[in-house]
Amino acid sequence: MNVIAERSTFQSGETGGWTELKVAKVSVMQAPPLYHTTGEVLDVSSAPGLERMARFLANFVTAAAGATRAELNP
């Protein structure tokens, strides 16, 4: 995962579709080498990785839901 820890106008993945809202957006994307190929099969999906990501996002979303607007979009 490449984390861009600063403000940017770059919009990866699905975030471009939300541009009209003009709010802070965060995209979490992991793109393996076999992206967009027939190699993207179930076997290469890590079950523990799924749980880690779900737990991380739950913490992140809960924090975002409780943050001030200034904290979300400084």
Binding site: E14, G17, W18, V28, Q30, A31, P32, L34, Y35, H36, T37, T38, E40, V41, L42, V44, S45, L50, M53, A54, L57, A58, V61, A64, A65
Partner: peptide
């Protein structure tokens, strides 16, 4: 706060984006 995962894919699409959608569903349950 909007949480979004796209549901469409090329081929099996386990990583783009079955895993993202599955995590979104897990968050819905949470």
């Amino acid at each position: 706060v909007v949480l979004n995962a796209h549901a469409d894919a090329w081929f099996d699409g386990a990583g783009d984006n079955a895993d993202g959608l599955a995590v979104l569903v897990a968050l819905a349950r949470h």
